[in-house]
Design a protein around this nucleic acid. Sequence first.
DNA 1: GCCAACGTTGGC
DNA 2: GCCAACGTTGGC
Length: 156
Amino acid sequence: MAYWLFKTEPGCFSFYDLKNRPDRTEPWDGVRNFQARNFLRDTVKVGDRVLFYHSNIPEPAVVGLAEIVRSGYPDTTALNPDSEHFDPRASVDKPIWYMVDLRYLEPLQQIVTLESIKQTPLLAGMPLVKRSRLSIQPVTADEWRIILTMGGMKGI
DNA sequence: GCCAACGTTGGC
DNA sequence: GCCAACGTTGGC
């Protein structure tokens, strides 16, 4: 089982939106970056755990936990001219873009802010800290454990 | 709202 | 295939 961090702007889609979805599950569509696409298509697997991160807000932070319930499959929003994520280069035979399905698990007892992550030397290697804009990031087992502890999730 | 970082595009 | 221009992201 691997660990990931998924970024989203909560004004667009938040952890609480995920909680309110049927089955608390949502297709993670609209990723239009090749490195993130490669993770979704090739590496993210069912059962992997996800840190759900809210970006582009006054206090960006990891807010909750989710899990992968379906591994990579073609992102059909790329084929839909009415979608804001439409990509005319994509086709059924060559979908270009991929998505996975994500299911809500639980919120952190307390959010783990970007500021507190930056102040933690053991988390200095995270792409988040290096100011990468990558929206799908791998997380090591050590980083996962540290962030859950910071989030008050010692029982897990 | 600014702007630095950085990924993508397209002319050559 | 280089690289300048451009667009987007996201912290602040």
